[in-house]
Design a binder for these strands. Sequence first.
DNA 1: GTGCACTTGCACAGCAATGTGCAACTTACT
DNA 2: AGTAAGTTGCACATTGCTGTGCAAGTGCAC
Lengths: 212, 212
Amino acid sequence: MASMTTGNSSRADANRRRILDVALAELLRDPDASMDQIARAAGVVRRTVYGHFPNREALVATLVDGAVEAVAAAHAAGRAGAEGPAEALAGGTLAVWEVADRYRILVALARRSVTLQGLRDRLAPVREACAEVLRQGLEAGVFTSALPAPAMAYVHEQLLFAVMDAVNDGLLTAREASRAATVTALTAAGVPASDATELVAKLSVEKGGPGG
Amino acid sequence: MASMTTGNSSRADANRRRILDVALAELLRDPDASMDQIARAAGVVRRTVYGHFPNREALVATLVDGAVEAVAAAHAAGRAGAEGPAEALAGGTLAVWEVADRYRILVALARRSVTLQGLRDRLAPVREACAEVLRQGLEAGVFTSALPAPAMAYVHEQLLFAVMDAVNDGLLTAREASRAATVTALTAAGVPASDATELVAKLSVEKGGPGG
DNA sequence: GTGCACTTGCACAGCAATGTGCAACTTACT
DNA sequence: AGTAAGTTGCACATTGCTGTGCAAGTGCAC
């Protein structure tokens, strides 16, 4: 057991992955899930988890690192090559939605937790990038809002989670949620509903989004 | 100590109130705040808290009851006498904002917590009332959205919290937040920005909101 | 200044979770 | 078969929180 971190058996590696996967889901369901709950859900004994991660904090940190990275990458990729703030906002939103399942846990964790407040900070760069896009849009007159750009970024973030909740509760399907969330995000930024719908439809087709 | 629930000394009553007040703030800061944290924050010993509330659950329940009631009442009052869905939505939003400080804890608690998941249900009536207003607005063509009315209600709710967070983080002042949040809520529902601003300005004056 | 209502300060039992140590056991590879 | 990495099943110490019991204290009212 000494070199469980360095050594690479197929089994050990698979277990590690599965523990991380399951932990993500389990912590989403209950941010206070115990190591035992996670271990059992992963089909493993608690002691084994401690073989892969020195403590709970390390496990969660690994999880958070991966999720933050994935979201940041998706957001950046979604904005790449966009023409104008509206396209950038829509593209980033659509892209982030792709990793939504993993993103959810982030905020579920960030909401509570004395232990994990650093997480909000970790996510700040993404929010700032978003705020910058919003700022440009306001300046260019593409966006309109009673709120300053940074506050709009907060709204944008929460708006996505609201739609995720709605999906979870069966109020709309995951298929339609992606575009609906993006349209709503643009609308909340003051883009006329018709323009927002049109833009998102165009981007969805380009990027090969769901439906047609 | 036998009749602390029935008897009424000025001191005991004041303590009870202060415990509830402080608990609200303390649980907002950390939904997992212990009885000891709450007690100390209220300038009291843990044992004393147990004199007023049989257990942690009862304390939180009292808190929740009060907050839910206040929010529901404010929401209803804000919609009273409104002409059309737009006014109803704006009025309800402005009114709810008044009790925002207490409302925040509700969702902070509802988000996590295996113990308190019933809270989301308790809040459901308010959300449903909101959804009904939204539905009427969609039907009347006053609102436009890619989302069904119930999902819009989710967005509406989260939008308010996003603005609250923004206020907490100093992105805008509490003074301007009330109207800005309401305008944004209307805008997210597809109401043109200019119309939304105008309507909210009118309502703010009528109801004697902040600023003018 | 006596009594009552409430508060305090301890002490206690109980529980749930964390993190470790160690001796078996199972796989997989050779 | 034999070896090594990984897994399991306990046992254990520790910690933090809950809820309760009881005796001594404090303030207010009459």
